[in-house]
Amino acid sequence: SQVHIGNTTFTFDNPEKAQKYAEKYAKKKGLTVQKNGDVWTVE
């Protein structure tokens, strides 16, 4: 599972961890999370 934030990609061994990280980061920065398969993009 991966989380894309700008030009940075974070890889997680667990989809739940990836989703939590993406949502927490997005909330903190006032951004949105797009999910595509097991990839979350914060923008």
Rank of each mutant, 00 (worst) to 15 (best):
E23Y: 08
V42H: 00
V33C: 00
T11K: 09
K27E: 11
V42G: 00
D38L: 09
F10W: 08
H4D: 05
Q2F: 13
K20L: 12
P15G: 04
E23T: 04
V3W: 00
Y25V: 12
E23F: 06
T9L: 15
P15H: 06
N7K: 11
G30E: 01
N7C: 15
A18W: 01
F10D: 02
N7P: 05
A22G: 00
N36L: 12
H4C: 14
K29C: 15
A22V: 09
V33D: 01
N36R: 11
N14A: 09
A22R: 01
Y21F: 15
K28P: 04
K28D: 12
G30K: 04
S1V: 14
K17V: 12
G30D: 03
K29N: 13
N14D: 14
E43D: 12
Y21M: 08
K17S: 14
G6C: 15
D13G: 06
E43P: 05
K24T: 12
A26R: 01
V42A: 01
A26E: 02
I5K: 03
D38W: 07
V42D: 01
G37D: 07
E16V: 11
A26G: 05
V3I: 04
P15V: 07
V39M: 10
K28R: 09
N36Y: 11
V3A: 02
K24I: 10
V3H: 01
F10M: 12
P15R: 03
T9W: 15
D13R: 04
Y21P: 00
K24Q: 14
T8R: 15
Q19F: 08
T11I: 14
T9F: 15
V3M: 02
K24D: 15
Q34D: 05
W40Y: 10
K28Q: 13
A22N: 01
Q2I: 14
Q19R: 14
K35H: 08
T11R: 07
V33Y: 05
H4T: 09
A18L: 00
S1I: 14
N7M: 10
E16K: 10
T11H: 14
Y25S: 03
Q19D: 02
G6H: 11
A22C: 06
K24F: 13
V3K: 03
G30I: 01
V3D: 01
K17G: 07
Y21K: 00
T32G: 05
E23G: 00
E23N: 04
V42K: 00
L31S: 02
D38N: 14
E23S: 04
A18E: 00
D38V: 05
I5F: 06
T9G: 03
S1W: 15
K17Y: 10
A22P: 00
Q2S: 08
Q2N: 08
V39H: 12
V33L: 08
L31F: 13
E43W: 07
V39I: 13
Q2M: 14
K17D: 15
W40I: 05
F10V: 12
K24E: 15
G6M: 08
T11W: 15
T11L: 13
D13N: 09
T11C: 15
D13I: 05
I5T: 02
V3C: 04
E16T: 10
E23A: 05
G30W: 03
K17I: 13
E16C: 09
N14F: 04
D38A: 07
T8L: 15
T32A: 08
Q19H: 07
V33I: 10
K29V: 08
F12W: 03
K35I: 05
N7S: 11
T32H: 08
H4Y: 05
A18G: 01
A18Y: 00
V33N: 00
E23W: 04
G37I: 01
A22Y: 04
T41L: 11
E16M: 10
Q2C: 14
V42S: 02
K20F: 09
Y25N: 04
V42M: 04
Q19P: 00
H4N: 10
V39W: 06
K27L: 08
Y21A: 07
L31I: 07
K27Y: 07
V3N: 01
E43H: 12
K29F: 15
V39K: 07
K35T: 04
Q2G: 05
Y25H: 06
T11A: 07
G37L: 03
Q2T: 12
K20S: 11
F10K: 09
V3P: 01
A22D: 01
K29M: 14
Q19E: 11
A26V: 02
Y25A: 06
Q34F: 12
E43G: 14
K17E: 15
T41D: 05
F10T: 06
I5C: 10
S1L: 13
V39N: 11
K20H: 09
S1T: 12
K24L: 11
G37N: 06
N14H: 08
D13E: 10
D13S: 10
E16G: 07
F10A: 05
G37Y: 02
T41Y: 14
L31Q: 02
Y25M: 11
V33H: 00
N14Y: 05
V39Q: 08
D13T: 08
G6Y: 11
I5H: 03
K24P: 00
D38I: 05
H4L: 11
T41K: 06
H4W: 07
G30L: 03
F12G: 03
D38E: 10
K24H: 13
K35S: 05
K24V: 10
K35E: 01
Y21D: 03
K20W: 11
Y25E: 09
Y25L: 13
K29T: 12
N14T: 15
V39R: 05
F12P: 02
W40C: 02
H4A: 06
L31G: 05
V39G: 12
E43N: 09
I5V: 09
F10R: 11
K24Y: 14
G37A: 04
V33F: 05
N7I: 06
V39F: 08
K29E: 09
H4M: 13
V39D: 12
Q34C: 14
T11S: 09
Q34N: 12
G37C: 07
V3G: 01
L31K: 03
Q2E: 11
S1F: 15
E16L: 11
T32L: 08
K29D: 05
E16D: 11
L31M: 09
